[in-house]
Design a protein around this nucleic acid. Sequence first.
RNA 1: GCCGAAGUGGCGGAACAGGCAGACGCGCACGACUCAAAAUCGUGUUCCCUCGGGAGUGUGGGUUCGAUUCCCACCUUCGGCACCA
Length: 923
Amino acid sequence: MAETVNYDHKEIEPRWQKRWEQDGLYEANIDPQRPKYYALTMLPYPSGDMHIGHWYAMTPSDARARFMRMRGFNVLFPMGFDAFGLPAENAAIRHGIHPKEWTFANVARMRQQLRTMGTMFDWRREAVSADSKYYKWSEWFFSQLYKKGLAYRKMSPVDWCPHCNTTLAREQVWGEDRHCERCGTPVIKKNLEQWFFRITQYAEELLDFSHIDWPERVRTLQQNWIGRSEGASVVFHTEQGDPLEVFTTRPDTLWGATFMVLAPEHPLVKKITTPAQKETVEQYVLQATRQTDIQREAAEKEKTGVFTGGYAINPVNQARIPIWIADYVLMTYGTGAIMAVPAHDERDFAFAIKFGLPIIPVIARSDGLVKSCVLKSEVQEGFEPALRAAAIPFEADQAGWLVTPRLDQVSAYREIARQYLAKDGWIELVGAEWAFIFGDASLEWDSVEADREILQRCQARRPALAGCRTVMEMLWQNEWYRDTLYHDQFGMMIHSGEFSGTPGETAKRQVIDWLEAQGIGKGAINYHLRDWLISRQRYWGAPIPIVYCPTHGAVLVPDDQLPVLLPDDVEWRPTGESPLKLHPTWKKTTCPICGGPAERETDTMDTFMCSSWYHLRYLSPDYDAWPFDPVEYDYWMPVDTYTGGIEHATMHLIYTRFFHKAGRDMGIMKGPEPMIQLRNQGIILGEDSEKMSKSRGNVVAPDDLVERYGADTVRAYLMFFARWDMGGPWNSSGIEGTARWIRRVWALFTETPAAGAPDPQARRSLRRKLHQTLCKVTHDYESFEFNTIISALMELLNEMYRLRDLGVANTPEWQEALDLYLRMMAPSCPHVTEELWMRLGKPYSIHQQAWPQVDEEAAAEAEITLVLQVNGKVRDRIQVPVDITQEQAQAFALASEVVQKHLGGKPPRKVILVPGRLVNIVI
RNA sequence: GCCGAAGUGGCGGAACAGGCAGACGCGCACGACUCAAAAUCGUGUUCCCUCGGGAGUGUGGGUUCGAUUCCCACCUUCGGCACCA
């Protein structure tokens, strides 16, 4: 064996990287003989420098792709660049470099850095989205979507970043202050003609995750984002006779709809507003549309709104109810109009209390809570003893009684109330039971008319209530009642005509059926998901292949004229307008239909459009007849394993699914989903536990680490230092552990074995540990538990060091251990294992070797440690053969001195035997 | 407010399916080698203790012979959504 030399990553790593590239070791080609495996990791944006986060995302993914390759799969593991986007333009503005130049220089630099990681990327398949031979097909996909009616243009209020001078998609607006994802500037609303993709058409299908193995977290995020609500759409009519459709999730509360609210932008607002209200309404509308979202937020959710003067008819009970407008109703959801049920909707309740609109409870409380506050002046002597006699719970104070009858005591309580009521007094019950007991009558609070009558009677009796506009407002003044007045639970319907008494479980369904039978409404489903806004008023993106002709309107650029190329000579300084708009000639063109003069669309596409199909371009980046080579597609697709950050859950990961499904419906793609298995890595924070950022100065530069420790050490440390899906704060001293491990591997594998008489026991131990480790490492690679892979290998190494001193180093078992150890280590540390593999005289390359098979027999334990417990506490441990019988185990346990001592002569009451693990003696 | 994830030594983390808590590593302490340092190697390292033991996986309860693991309530941290009718 070669003389011992020190481990020198600087010599080893570049040498093997060069050799692998020369040999095309990682080139993946179609091979029908072998099962394919498409491993994909999210492509980076070429921001200039590789971040440790890129390494964290890519190297464990690479290790797993290598593992799959050793397991016999034909693995495709490609890489590319998501190269369009704002930072290129911002850099251009700041440093005066052309975005194209800046981007491609960064791509070149990052490509270099990526190569130092020792990954198995097949670079022949690299794709760069800003390359015209790539974006030609992004444009082509736009055309396909347009032809299919999935791309459309509309005037729409959109989020606009005043710093980036562009619109943003809903998911690119972050945080409570609604700031731009890229630059942090709070966004404003603008009304613009914009292009959208009709992703909402796929909302229902996107909720179906049955074909994919994705983390629960991602599925939940997508589910919430899509936000499906089941309910009914119900048609009200204005007094003028115009239909006014609303969506509600609670058709069972229809009888409690005491007013309606329209979004300020609602088209009917003008028509229903009465002359008297005209000015107020116009002012409110103006103010609402002018306000930015931040201003709306700043209002602390205090409800605002104005009455239009118009009325609608509630179709279930013909009640005439006022129509208001308020900005808490959004034009973008449902129909932009709601029926307000203030008794059972929190927002409507707040609005009604503020503006004095009537609130009628129509759903009974299901918790049975009933409250009745009785003032001394309202009752005669004997009230309290009567309560006591009936065992009705109450608290007394100077002013009176706070009575809380149980539901089964309510009728008894009503009787007492009637009996002891003072002249001109009244008593109310609130909560699960609503009643107003006057001397001459008990009034049901079941309609707006009843509300008025009850209020009048109360006000007549107590002038202090003169300021109250509704019964609920009166009750609301009593602090003690507050938690009992409003709820949004399902429950038995009350005050709802013939539906009163319908139980909560079936109410919704029954009302929907009835609405359908009556022809006034039907079951309906609504989604929070909005159509995907793709227009960006920027230069550095794929052009939207549309031409505007004065006679023919928006016309697609014919496929044979694609790509619409970006001009190089643009003025990119920020003006608030798209640089393409300011270009002197670029937008001037001719209409593809009539040949007359026409103008190009000057907006470009959201970069998420480009990244929605990059996994297809990788298949054949130079193919020019189609976005991808169908032969490659049929072999490689779908992606078997996709890895990347969870931050894309509601952006890229929804878009790419939509894209695939739309493509499938157009006959371009195949199968239900583009990516079968998804796994997310966590985020590495700075050593200060804060997000890494240049301004904080806590950024960990991978290049420095590679220089100092080598790529293998950095790779292993990234696998070892945390659970991969969790991430966590970086710890710079921890890497010493993996560095030491690799040095110890190197030392053991390059030393000349000492002669010695092999101990048969040690030889067996070595094989046992070796195959146990193999079993664990195999399992952990399969389930992405990278940290325990490295720790298992460290354990095995420690054991090998121990056994080496017992003379096993000259045995076949030792040779087997060296061989398997390197194979197991190869995916995580490709360079050092290749080097040691060569030094052991084995055939090039270790990365073309098969993953070893576990020898179950060798891995089996001969002896086990039997834990002896007394009353569930560990008292002793003994070594016993694995095949020991239950009786023997019990006998051994009782024979233990320590156990006997703890038994203290008492007989065991019970003995629990867990085969192969423990004996628990209960006394 | 709603939804989700996570709380284990000084630190990162481990524990298959209810059965030995703290694997592996960092750090630290002591020792060996060295003139010395680095590197390397060895030993120890949850806490308390009267050296018999006792306590201990965010907190408080519960189920069980036995709970980091299951159930209930709560606290803290992180992430997402947020006037979505």
